[in-house]
């Protein structure tokens, strides 16, 4: 008897038994399917209307696999532009017909956006990402891409940083806005993004020299162009090792969560007043995605755990353990993605 097939609510990549896989999960965190990957993957995104998802290989990645959302089976594979590699992230166009993926030149890390046809896997066009070492990209509004440029040419060299956050018009590739950080923060690498409902962009950073100063690690770029930083409690900061792994906003756009795998902690802020709400301790936590209800977040860890965290204005954050995968040797990788009902283009 064929098992009943359903659409995953969440998608994630993982390590398992020394190899790698992509997994579709139901709303309770139970696996619906898993597909072995040829290499360690990074982001995985879904488009509910077209019934597809895409697995993006981890930097320096060679492929993006466009897969069936219900079975996880690969339909077509997109190959990196010659002399370039995937940087681990991509987004579908609103209609799901195209995928926009960040790539860097192998030698210089100069960034480009490569656009592929999701039915054929063919490369349609490329345009410069207007920065060095692009990492995550999101739609800040329809037709406008926000691109985090990590700016790292050599991860082991704390001097080589050219980070920026860039807004591009996706059709023309034209730069609409470019933020760079002050010289005091020249060691910060902007790498991950989450969109807010009001057009604001949350950006998360990694400090290449966390020892010498307590620099901000999460900020918000408002639609009007202003930058602000979210506060991190001073007693918590040293534990983070200057490293944020992923960031998400809840479905209402009122709560932001950022994960610090080296600190083993997820932190939560209120968008309205920028207040630090609280934290959840979870060793090697990295994946974060909005829960179905406003004020909730899903977290995954490299030790196979999944938590549902709920923000309670009176009691702070509560965490509820979901399906534990430790026994199967599942290690959740950096990112967890929610498959939004309907079109999956934004966010």
């Amino acid at each position: 008897m064929a098992p009943e097939l359903s659409t995953p609510a969440y998608l994630a990549c993982c390590g398992v038994g020394g190899g790698f896989a992509a997994i579709g999960l139901d709303g309770d965190g139970r696996p619906l399917w898993h597909q072995t990957q040829p290499a360690r993957a990074h982001d995985i995104i879904g488009h509910a209307d077209l019934g597809i998802c895409a697995v993006v290989a981890r930097k320096p990645g060679t492929y993006v696999a466009v897969c069936d959302l219900v079975t996880g089976k690969t339909q077509v594979t997109c190959k990196a532009v010659s002399g370039h590699h995937f940087d681990g992230h991509g987004v579908f166009s609103l209609d799901g017909r195209e995928i926009f993926a960040t790539q860097s030149a192998d030698r210089t890390q100069d960034g480009l956006i490569a656009v592929y046809d999701t039915r054929s896997g063919a490369l349609l066009r490329t345009f410069p990402s207007q920065g060095t070492e692009p990492h995550e990209l999101i739609w800040s509004e329809p037709g406008i891409l926000a691109i985090a440029h990590g700016g790292i040419v050599n991860r082991n060299d704390p001097d080589a940083i050219d980070s920026s956050l860039v807004l591009l018009e996706a059709e023309s590739g034209e730069v609409l806005r470019r933020w760079v950080l002050d010289d005091d923060w020249e060691t910060l690498s902007i790498r991950h993004l989450a969109g807010l409902t009001d057009g604001g962009i949350v950006f998360a950073m990694q400090d290449q020299d966390a020892a010498t100063d307590r620099r901000p690690l999460v900020g918000i770029a408002t639609a009007s162009g202003a930058l602000s930083f979210l506060p991190i409690p001073p007693e918590l900061q040293p534990r983070l090792d200057g490293y944020i792994g992923s960031v998400a906003a809840d479905t209402a756009g009122r709560v932001v969560a950022a994960t610090a795998p080296r600190g083993g902690v997820a932190m939560f802020w209120s968008v309205d007043d920028g207040r630090f709400i609280g934290r959840v301790d979870l060793p090697d936590v990295c994946g974060v995605a909005p829960g179905a209800k406003p004020g909730t977040m899903r977290l995954t860890s490299g030790h196979g755990r999944q938590l549902l965290a709920a923000v309670d204005s009176r009691n702070g954050i509560s965490g509820l353990e979901l399906a534990e995968m430790t026994e199967a040797g599942i290690q959740w990788d950096n990112h967890l993605a929610r498959v939004a009902p309907g079109a999956g283009g934004l966010g």
Binding site: V16, G17, R30, P31, H34, L320, M325, E327, G329, I330
Partner: peptide, 22 residues
């Protein structure tokens, strides 16, 4: 948000062939 039982999860994982690699 009922906690998902470990048995239930393992049953799902067995069904999709994930257990036994560790």
């Amino acid at each position: 948000f009922d906690k998902i039982s470990r048995r239930q999860t393992l049953a799902t994982m067995l069904a999709i062939g994930m257990v036994g690699r560790m």
